[in-house]
Design a protein around this nucleic acid. Sequence first.
RNA 1: GGUCCCAUCGUCUAAUGGUUAGGACAGCGCGCUUUCAAUGCGUAAAUCCGGGUUCGAUUCCCGGUGGGACCGCCA
Length: 451
Amino acid sequence: MERSDKKYEQNIFEGLRWLGIDPDEGPEQEGPFAPYRQSERTAVYEKYIRQMLAEGKAFYCFHSEKELAEEKERMMAEKRAVLHICEYRDMPMAAAAALTEKNPDHIVRFKTPAGRKITFHDLIRGEVSFDSDLLGDFSIARKVDAPLYHFAVIVDDIEMKTTHVIRGEDHIPNTPKHILLFEALDATIPQFAHIPLILGSDRSKLSKRHGATSVDEYRAAGYLPEALFNFMALLGWNPGGDKEIFSKEELIEKFSLEKVQKSGAVFDIKKLDWMNGEYIRRKSVEELTEICLPYLKDFLQVSIPSNQFSNEYIKKVVELEQPRLKKISEIGELTDYFFRTPQYDKQLLRWKLMSDQEIFDSLSRSEKIISEVKIFESEFRSPYADLLRKDGASVKVGDIGLIFWPLRVALTGKKASPGPFEIMEILGIEESLARIRAAKDTLGRENGQTG
RNA sequence: GGUCCCAUCGUCUAAUGGUUAGGACAGCGCGCUUUCAAUGCGUAAAUCCGGGUUCGAUUCCCGGUGGGACCGCCA
């Protein structure tokens, strides 16, 4: 296996693990039918290929790729089904074997029986049938010891005693080929279930051009595994009823193939976002903080928790954002002002049509009140209420923003954030006052005022 | 082009031979609110079309239309 393949394989295992899916057997955990990697099973496949060849159920094809391509083009032009029925299919084995020595450019094909109607019962769709004449003599191995997909899977199914083949709808056209191969090898044909495809917003099969397609990318984007799992399970399947949030255990318990949808389901990222938010809000603060930490570090480029920013501090910050967090990856941008001095345009301090002087006065008022607060926690609201009562003439109902907006911006530098009280409770009096003064300075300097 | 699959709000879906066709996301509006969220309430929005069977069809059958998948010496 090549290095990149190894990495790719590893990526898949990690993705499954992250989602909480633990295979009973497979290349990682081994099992009764090991080895599980196709590349490690060539001896098994070779045995079956030789058998097919010996029994005259498969044959060597000596057409060059160029010839095949031309044939395909011709059929397209004639508007006929594109398939290859090979002239070499009845060549005597001895002659063919001799030819393989001289002509290295050959391949093993299945001798597809003519005039067969292949019907199978799909567990989700019911009867599905195909005409063998439209299949052609499809290839099954590049060389005796190099099987192609169709052959490798059916050998694996035989050897591993597979009872149910559950795969995407895009495999329906492959199923008649597999059935023919099972028959040729005198093997039991498993049950088939073809589940609907996951579609992009244009209703075509979800692919790279639609955006993220690997589990890895969703993890990086800040989705919770429980949310992704829940969301994916409900794409093309529904247990019936109005409930939408299910634990993995519930999903496993309720699942049945009968309730699987027949048509493809569009992947609606907006609904995933909502579901992710639901799961975020259900997390304990401790757990959520733990999950946020790597994203926070990455965004801020600092090592936390630290002496300056304790775990308790970070926990309060996370708790504050918990209601508005949709993706964990947003945590950094949403809370950066708790970890560094906010940078913002002076204009952001303005609420509606306030003049610079009014902003300055508003901030001064906040500064005064805050500096007089003795018991910090839970004492904000009353001083502000008093202030508003005293200034009842100038501060009208609905214009409370004259005080709160400049204050909040001075603290956060953002046009959207939690309220100023909650923020100051975490930031502390000293830091809060420093930020208010910094905001006043910004105004004062540009206005030629000193306050 | 050939073959196959599919068809309920924009999206994910529920339901039944008889319902005002239900829910959720997104949208919109309102309440709460300095802002953004969260939250509460409300609103708009669908049985692809045409035949048949039936007292009655969105549901069953047929045809059409539309969409999709596949047509590798990839998996």
